[in-house]
């Protein structure tokens, strides 16, 4: 059991890393919410901006994925 101290640290770290995913959730919600607010204000301009919506979501989501990746690395690679 005493040798598992490093494994315990790694697992705790993995759990902590998952907090970052919540940040990505806030980011994605922010992007989509602002897009919707803008689209409701000026519906005619909305279709032209969907590409930017997806790019924004992708950028925000990528950071959450990085956090998840750190968790996976701690779980399986350290």
């Amino acid at each position: 059991m005493e040798g598992d101290l490093a494994a315990m640290g790694a697992y705790i770290g993995a759990g902590l890393a998952c907090i970052g995913i919540g940040g990505a959730g806030i980011g994605v919600g922010n992007v989509a919410g602002n897009y919707l607010a803008g689209a409701l204000r000026n519906p005619s301009a909305a279709p032209g901006q969907t590409a930017f919506l997806f790019i924004g979501i992708a950028f925000a989501e990528a950071l959450g994925i990085f956090a998840f990746l750190v968790a996976l690395l701690l779980m399986f690679a350290v």
Binding site: E61, A62, I65, F66, L69, L72
Partner: peptide, 16 residues
């Protein structure tokens, strides 16, 4: 880096 990790990470995360 972000270009590749985004794609691989999103799929890996979902499947895992």
């Amino acid at each position: 880096v972000s270009h590749s990790i985004r794609l691989a990470g999103a799929l890996m995360a979902g499947h895992a």
